[in-house]
Amino acid sequence: MFSVSFEEMFLLEAIMYKVILWGGFIMGVEIFQVDAFTKEPFKGNPAGVSILDRERDDTWMQNVACEMNLSETAFLTRRKDGFELRWFTPTREIDFCGHATLASAHIIYETGLIDKEQTVQFFTRSGILTACIKDNGIELNFPAKPVQKVDLLGLSDALGVKLLYTGLNADMYLAEVSDEDTVKTLKPDLEKLLRLPASGIIVTSASSIGKYDFVSRCFAPAVGINEDPVTGSAHCLLGPYWQGKLGKSELTAYQVSKRGGYIGVKVVSDRVFLTGNAVTVMRCELL
């Protein structure tokens, strides 16, 4: 008598389900989850990446980002000369995101959408951004965003530490503190941060470890992210700042969140080149 094991039955059902999907009864949208600025899964900053076969409306993309519940989900639409790229947090669309751009480039190369020798061109709210593969990872070409010194009433109280410097670019604040341990042990009052006129607060210090030049953490409760694990866009501010303080244009950074992540930073004129690695941890289908 013919019989099948539970495992064989499960596999058969999975195959039949795929046949239904491929047959057109249910059309799915493929979504990847990628850990960015790390070589290890479950480290760095997770981002969702979806390469769309057609344009989708804003409400649909926002609902998907909310469902993914990651700091950012990236949506890519193929164009003749590159990809349109949009980023959504669980609560709103944003103008610029570093780690989800790295995750997007990683998926484009990994799935063979373009050759690894080619440069990826992204069309975004922040202008044209590019990515290419280098020996030590994927290099992103972003605009530099140097800060101007300002005083923000209430920031020191909200962070619970003394600040050596505060600077601003657009609505992102950068605050320098005395040492690396202060950055690591920081326990900000998120309710107080939420009342400040800022989309994000970057806290930084020089590193006491020779492995990297500076450390940072990034808090953005105003856009639904209490603490971002590794923030590529923040290094467009941090790069020029530490270039000025340390007198060097090539730096190594570490974001000391619970997950942590390494970023290579090179400042050239009005551009910041960020280099990082990424790991695909999940591939699923949204029905």
Rank of each mutant, 00 (worst) to 15 (best):
Q62E: 13
F10N: 12
K187M: 14
V161M: 09
E180V: 00
V34L: 07
A278L: 10
T231D: 12
T111Y: 08
G154Y: 01
E227I: 08
V230R: 04
T59G: 06
W242H: 02
P188T: 06
L286C: 08
N141M: 04
G24Q: 11
L274D: 10
L287Y: 12
F83E: 05
I225L: 04
E93A: 06
R125K: 12
Y254R: 01
T119E: 15
L76M: 09
L287P: 14
G244Y: 10
C284L: 14
F96R: 01
E176L: 05
Q33E: 09
A105C: 07
N277A: 03
T231H: 05
L12E: 15
K149E: 13
K258V: 12
D35N: 06
V34Y: 06
I201G: 00
K149L: 12
W242M: 02
W60E: 14
M16K: 14
L164G: 15
F10Q: 15
V267S: 00
E176S: 02
E8F: 07
W22C: 11
A175Q: 06
L159H: 04
N45V: 03
T252L: 13
D228F: 03
G276M: 02
T204K: 00
F75I: 07
L155W: 09
T231P: 08
K192M: 15
A253M: 03
K43N: 09
Y17D: 14
I263K: 02
T185D: 14
F42L: 09
Y173K: 01
I209W: 06
I31A: 02
D151H: 13
D157E: 15
V29G: 04
P46V: 01
F83G: 01
E13G: 07
K245F: 08
R78Y: 11
P197Y: 07
R259N: 08
L190M: 15
E13T: 14
Y165M: 08
A74K: 01
N63D: 13
E110V: 07
F42E: 11
F214P: 00
V120Q: 01
A234W: 10
S156E: 14
Q148I: 10
A14M: 11
K184Q: 11
N69D: 12
L237H: 10
A220G: 09
G48L: 05
K145F: 08
A144H: 04
D135M: 07
C218L: 15
L155S: 01
T38R: 00
E67D: 11
L251I: 03
E7K: 08
Q62V: 06
L140Q: 03
I128F: 03
M282A: 11
Q33T: 10
G112K: 04
D95H: 13
F32K: 00
F273M: 07
G48Q: 05
L11Y: 14
M27A: 13
F83V: 00
G260V: 01
I201C: 09
V34W: 10
G160F: 10
F88D: 07
A36V: 05
P229Y: 12
P146Y: 03
R79P: 08
A47E: 14
P41E: 12
A74H: 04
F32R: 05
Y17W: 07
D151W: 09
L113H: 13
R271Y: 11
L190F: 15
I31C: 03
I15E: 14
P240A: 04
Y241K: 02
F273Y: 15
P229D: 12
K18G: 07
D171H: 13
K258T: 11
F123N: 05
N169G: 00
L237C: 14
A206T: 14
V29S: 10
P146C: 04
M61R: 01
N69H: 11
A253N: 05
R195V: 11
T77Y: 11
